[in-house]
């Protein structure tokens, strides 16, 4: 084999043991990352795996064709409904949002072929049964702070109408109720009431993103809320609403 010093040989063996990769690809990854083990993992996992790709793609295409719409090259509402049935989840289940996130789907209720196949590849599944097995894992991802943040911000673009810049209020409220069911935020009902009561307009991306920050940073009794801060005005008004309605003592 190659002339490796002991240290690097150890690393190679370790790498193979952990990733299950061939020695060749392990060596590639380690060399690419200048023999840093951690970095080499990143390199390895960010690469598409040529190993079983061909077989996978064939199976995934078969899967895709099962759900594909008759008339267009996409999976549409009906296909998704079938997919959910077979996965034994409700279409409104938040796990479908996580799945869409993995597929990086541009819009709710549809998957393009590209999204579907790369998404499932990334998840490392090639059958419904395997995907079903992945569901608990995907649910658990919502508990991860960073992933939740990504999924939350992904949801805005995913849920809004194509071509619109902002999110219709009803949809936004629906999404918030869904998302905040996963994360305890005691003010979510007040927020939705406030919007229907006082705002009644679409929600901008900025407001959407900042609300998550608000729910994270500001405690429910607003003790650390800074009126001079950069919160969007809608959130400022929400705070005033909370004081007005005596939900929170000033």
């Amino acid at each position: 084999m190659h002339k490796l010093n002991r240290n690097n040989r150890d690393k190679l063996q370790q790498f193979v043991a952990i990733t299950g990769a061939s020695e060749k690809s392990a060596l590639q990854a380690l060399k690419a990352s200048d023999w840093h083990l951690e970095a080499a993992f990143d390199v390895f996992y960010s690469q598409p795996h040529p190993r079983s790709n061909a077989a996978d793609v064939r199976r995934l295409e078969e899967l895709y064709n099962r759900y594909k719409d008759q008339y267009s090259d996409m999976i549409l509402a009906e296909g998704i409904s079938n997919l959910c049935n077979e996965l034994e989840v409700e279409p409104q289940d938040i796990v479908t949002l996580v799945l869409s996130w993995h597929m990086n789907a541009a819009t709710a209720c549809e998957f393009s072929k590209q999204e579907f196949i790369t998404g499932l590849q990334a998840l490392g599944v090639d059958s419904i049964a395997k995907l079903r097995e992945k569901l608990p894992f995907m649910r658990s991802e919502l508990k991860d702070e960073q992933k939740f943040h990504d999924i939350y911000n992904f949801a805005f673009g995913w849920a809004k109408e194509k071509g619109q810049k902002s999110l219709a209020l009803d949809t936004a409220i629906g999404m918030w109720q869904l998302l905040f069911a996963e994360r305890e935020w005691p003010l979510v009902t007040h927020w939705c009431d406030f919007l229907q009561d006082r705002h009644n307009k679409a929600i901008s991306k900025d407001t959407w993103a900042q609300l998550l920050e608000f729910s994270r940073m500001v405690d429910p009794v607003l003790s650390n809320y800074d009126a001079e801060g950069a919160w969007p005005y809608l959130i400022d008004e929400f705070v005033e609403y909370l004081y007005d309605k005596n939900v929170v003592e000033k």
């Binding site: 901008s204 991306k205 900025d206 407001t207 969007p232 005005y233 400022d236």
Partner: peptide, 13 residues
Amino acid sequence: IKAIKKRMEDLIT
């Protein structure tokens, strides 16, 4: 100040 905030948000969109 509120008006400025609104305009800032509008400029963000």
